[in-house]
């Protein structure tokens, strides 16, 4: 058989395979993840906070942990140092030296929990961290409460947990464009604006 026709037939056969695979959506490669594996890996906490684990903490507990584990980089008074400033900055966003802090800029309280739990204290060299040195969920709630308290957003004795954290209204929440998260994709579809093409 001429090699041209043979490869054409092969191509048709292959196309058939691909079409069949598209229907069943399966190359049969990889394996199913167990619910336990997913739970262990899934550390993302979105703005509605539905992924938040059980636990709670208050600013009073958080202050102790902050002094031990955070103050060296972020300062005794959250003024910053090797790490960024964590409070203040209100009224600076329109200035020539804006300070984007939790109180002045962050739109969702759940972000504080997500960031502390995944990335703090910093581990620059990616060294293994012994389990007993990792922050517990209660400790993360306590630190979150402490930062919210020191930014004037909650009271010192207010306990923070999975139910009330997502409901906290952050001061700068309504200062973003577009305002609603639901509109981000629509907005993009219309190609209305990029920073470079409109203010």
């Amino acid at each position: 058989m001429p090699s041209g026709r043979r490869s054409l037939l092969l191509l048709v056969a292959l196309a058939g395979c691909v079409a069949a695979q598209a229907q069943t959506s399966s190359y049969g490669i990889g394996r199913a993840a167990t619910p336990e594996e997913v739970q262990a890996w899934d550390i993302s906490v979105g703005p509605d906070g539905k992924e938040l684990p059980p636990g709670s903490g208050s600013a009073k507990d958080g202050a102790v942990i902050y002094a031990q584990k955070c103050a060296a980089c972020h300062g005794q008074n959250l003024e910053g140092g090797a790490g960024p400033r964590l409070a203040g900055g209100q009224g600076t966003l329109t200035s020539l030296q804006p300070q984007k802090t939790i109180g002045s800029y962050w739109p969702f309280a759940t972000q504080i929990w997500d960031f502390i739990s995944r990335a703090m204290p910093p581990n620059f060299y990616n060294r293994p961290v012994p389990p007993d040195q990792k922050l517990t969920h209660d400790q993360v709630y306590s630190l979150t409460a402490f930062l919210l308290y020191r930014n004037g957003i909650i009271k010192e004795d207010e306990a923070i947990d999975a139910a009330n954290l997502p409901k906290i209204q952050m001061p700068n929440r309504n200062n973003f464009v577009p305002a609603r998260l639901e509109d981000v994709l629509d907005y993009r579809g219309k190609r209305a604006c990029r920073f470079g093409t409109c203010p």
């Binding site: 979105g46 509605d48 997500d114």
Partner: peptide
Amino acid sequence: GSQPFMAH
């Protein structure tokens, strides 16, 4: 998911 996750 069905919304942005609001990572850092």
